[in-house]
């Protein structure tokens, strides 16, 4: 099973236009199993678009995306099946407002026949205990704080037992006092070996958890390297300019 493919995710000359606006201009990137890749860059540089292309929430204009060896941009391929193995966490949580906290977690695994209702319930209990939301399991999401919603959104994805997690600015919509609790959950997750792609503006966090950091600028990868390389010795003037703005 393992190593039939070179990288868990690989993009080849990935381009995305919105009308006449060229948002991704040919991105060649890869993510390896167990790797934690963070994406930083100025607003509008295409970070979210890149991440959303990885699970085909945006349809690329051209180029290819290989997930576990399969080109998921092919016509006629079942994207749904591949999405089951790619968890995604959104800036605005997007927890299901019509379902209880516990149902948020069990809906997909049961519906997609990954688990029986009983198995899913047991797993939900475990996941809720892990994020300290056990006493809220029958509440509706409107009763949760932003930080609680985002932690719920994270474990909702985990219930599908994904091979990779995609995070799109998971803490940007949170009140400052709730950022820490969410970052803590993500830290524990990556420590346990979860392959992750994280778009973030939290530079300290990026430095701490990343194996590799890429700096996106205007639809291109302007620079990439280890956290030390990128944060301590940026080579590209655009990277230097960006970092000087966000770090001080």
């Amino acid at each position: 099973m393992t190593d039939k493919y070179e990288h868990m995710i690989k993009t080849v000359d990935l381009k995305k236009d919105f009308g006449s606006l060229k948002v991704l201009k040919g991105v060649n990137e890869h993510v390896d199993k167990g790797e934690v890749l963070t994406i930083i860059g100025p607003s509008g540089s295409g970070k979210s678009t890149f991440l959303r292309c990885l699970n085909m929430l945006e349809t690329p204009t051209s180029g290819q995306i290989f997930f576990e060896g399969t080109d998921i941009t092919q016509k006629g391929i079942s994207v749904d099946a591949h999405r089951q193995k790619m968890g995604m966490v959104f800036q605005h949580f997007n927890v299901f407002n019509n379902l209880t906290v516990k149902k948020n977690i069990t809906l997909a695994p049961v519906l997609l026949k990954k688990k029986t209702q009983k198995e899913a319930d047991e797993m939900a209990d475990e996941l809720l205990a892990r994020i300290g939301l056990t006493d809220k399991k029958d509440a509706h999401p409107s009763r949760l704080s932003g930080g609680q919603k985002q932690r719920l959104a994270i474990v909702r994805s985990l219930a599908m037992e994904p091979d990779v997690m995609l995070f799109d600015e998971p803490t940007s919509a949170l009140d400052p006092e709730m950022v820490g609790e969410v970052l803590q959950v993500i830290k524990e997750l990556v420590k346990s070996g979860m392959t992750s792609v994280i778009v973030t503006h939290e530079m300290g966090f990026a430095k701490e958890v990343s194996d590799r950091v890429i700096f996106m600028d205007d639809g291109n990868i302007a620079e990439e390297g280890t956290p030390t390389e990128l944060f301590e010795h940026p080579q590209n003037p655009r990277t230097q300019e960006f970092l000087s703005k966000v770090l001080y």
């Binding site: 749904d80 968890g87 959104f90 997007n94 599908m160």
Partner: peptide, 23 residues
């Protein structure tokens, strides 16, 4: 209904019909 609800459901692997019906 917020577009994010559909997107979250799809990102879990639900078909658009399932997402429509359940979310």
């Amino acid at each position: 209904v917020d577009r994010g609800q559909m997107e979250a459901a799809r990102s879990l692997g639900l078909s658009s019909k399932q997402a429509m019906i359940h979310v």
